[in-house]
Design a protein around this nucleic acid. Structure first.
Lengths: 327, 327
DNA sequence: GGTGGAGGGTCAACAAGTATG
DNA sequence: CCATACTTGTTGACCCTCCAC
């Protein structure tokens, strides 16, 4: 099924068929229609690989996940795929599973396939070493920014997101607010905690319970931490949690202690992970990082870079506060 | 960066360079080494698109998700990507988001790119209408089988999985077992319920509470259903749940009613969705559909079909019972 | 002066598009 | 509007040139 078949069926030469299908040259309308009919009848699709050879562009990009495709990188991938697909660009899925061998293997394959660019994403927002490229194509880092500030990175503005969450609690009249979050070694935990402290300080408040409680991102930690907090500060009236899982654990812990949410203690989570935030009792007010949008912006940035208009640096996209019943 | 550059650097013709790099033809070892050195020095990667043009095979496949990439299709995609990547085959990610327009668009793009085959996956196990193909390539349906039995489909053996779960409860000495599951319109709910009934009948048992309770796949339904069950059959000693979310809701409901799991009532879930099954109190015994393996088998089946050795029909892969603390 | 094999060059072909006569 | 030539990168069939015997 090539353009030669279409030309034969339409009774024209391949050159004429090409012109007809690409709206070029001077042809009678009737001829164009005859060629278009023949193409439709045969289900002709021009061979992208042959075109790419000529044009020097493949209209494909690689989507490389460095950790493994998980809850955070998936929305980014899908957002990017959506934005690129609209521009007739196809996407190679490359999951490295955190394995350096697999990463090399995928990069080598992407080089062979002459992708026009690469989007790199990871599950965490800690910065990562830049790709050691054999290939000379633009790269955009989504979610996990490159350590090299000359690279193009797109990340969620966790600082702003955390501030929104904490401000929301303050605006609701809460004054003794504690922060329970994940491991201190995670960039996400650090930046959210810093935003928490600063936002409280601006309002003349101090963290309830003395200090930020670093732990794990999971529910058991939320349940456990809430007991510590109420022991250290019985008059605590709000919890800002570093993840929805922690917040859900906290909600369960509070309910089992007979504490009312949001009556006695208001609760704000982070991630807007529906299976946690809507299944939580009560449904969680939480910060959404808008990862789908992040993927789309990363895709647009990559297209810019492909066209030679790359704007290096880290771009932070705003998070959005989703208000439900826990505040 | 083409083979011509390599040939020039090595001081040979492009044909000779090709032979050297592909271990073909008659050349001196010294010549081969010189070409290999030049290639390494320049970071040469053969252009896959040019090779494909010649060979007629692109060594790419399309991964098409019909609903949207979610919790169930993601492991399938990753399993397939893993299996295909090992065979030097790259994967085009195509998310249709349940949109027929997007599906046509993606199929058209895949046709243009001359993929060697397509894997279709969905989030549910209900059968789906076969792809109306413009293109003449093998298709394998993973997770959601094709309605046409002449197509190749790979699905989890939910029947067997449900039987394992129920047998496990019976083997533990439970005799009054109820089944709480999702909407009756879902194939998954129907087949698991049928397996539940038959397995009980074989042991001379009858469903506790009279009949299977169809509802939703979520936690609130689990919490609600468990009250109905205990009202209808106070001596109920086990629950087989159609999903981990339902099971977790049931566990929460039972705990709040003061019922001990597994002391008073044993609990088996379905899906082995870690965020539910390990966060559940107690951690859930559950049925794992091994979706990653399913993706790998789908990929292998596609490779068979590409080589002309397709074995039509529906292939069911065994589920695996994962035993934790709820039984 | 053939013969044969080692070593390497030449050219058509793949699909599509552009340019020119 | 057709015919033809040429472009892209790569491969493989075919061909040519040595040199030894």
């Amino acid at each position: 099924m090539t353009i030669a078949d279409v030309a034969a069926l339409a009774g024209v030469s391949v050159g004429t068929a090409s012109k007809a299908l690409n709206n070029r040259g001077k042809l009678r309308q009737e001829t164009r229609a005859r060629v278009a009919d023949a193409a439709r009848q045969l289900g002709f699709r021009p061979n992208e690989m042959a075109r790419s050879l000529l044009s020097g562009r493949s209209f494909t990009v690689g989507l490389l996940t460095t950790d493994h495709v998980g809850r955070f990188s998936l929305p980014v991938l899908l957002g990017a795929e959506d934005a690129l697909g609209a521009g007739e660009i196809s996407v190679f899925l490359c999951d490295t599973r955190g394995d350096a061998i697999r990463e090399r293997h995928h990069l080598s394959a992407l080089a062979s396939r002459r992708v026009d660019g690469i989007i790199v994403t990871g599950r965490r927002t800690d910065s990562r070493p830049p790709l050691r490229q054999f290939l000379d194509v633009p790269v955009v880092y989504a979610m996990a920014p490159s350590e090299d500030p000359r690279d193009v990175s797109v990340v969620p503005d966790e600082w702003q997101g955390a501030r929104e969450g904490v401000r929301h609690l303050i605006a609701a009249g809460r004054t003794r607010i504690a922060h329970i979050t994940g491991p201190a070694r995670h960039h996400s935990a650090q930046v959210r905690a810093a935003a928490f402290r600063e936002t409280l300080a601006e309002a003349g408040l101090r963290p309830a319970g003395g200090e930020v409680m670093f732990g794990e991102w999971n529910e058991p930690w939320g349940r456990q931490a809430v007991r510590h907090v109420l022991h250290a500060e019985p008059r605590c009236d709000a919890l800002f949690c570093g993840s929805d899982q922690i917040a859900r654990g906290a909600a369960d812990g509070l309910r089992e202690m007979g504490v009312d949410v949001p009556g006695d203690i208001a609760l704000v989570g982070f991630d807007n992970w529906d299976v946690m935030s809507t299944a939580c009792r009560p449904p969680l007010t939480t910060v959404d990082m808008e990862l789908g949008e992040l993927g789309r912006v990363a895709a647009m940035s990559l297209l810019e870079a492909i066209e030679g208009r790359a704007r290096p640096g880290v771009r932070r996209l705003p998070c959005r506060l989703v208000i439900r019943d826990s505040t």
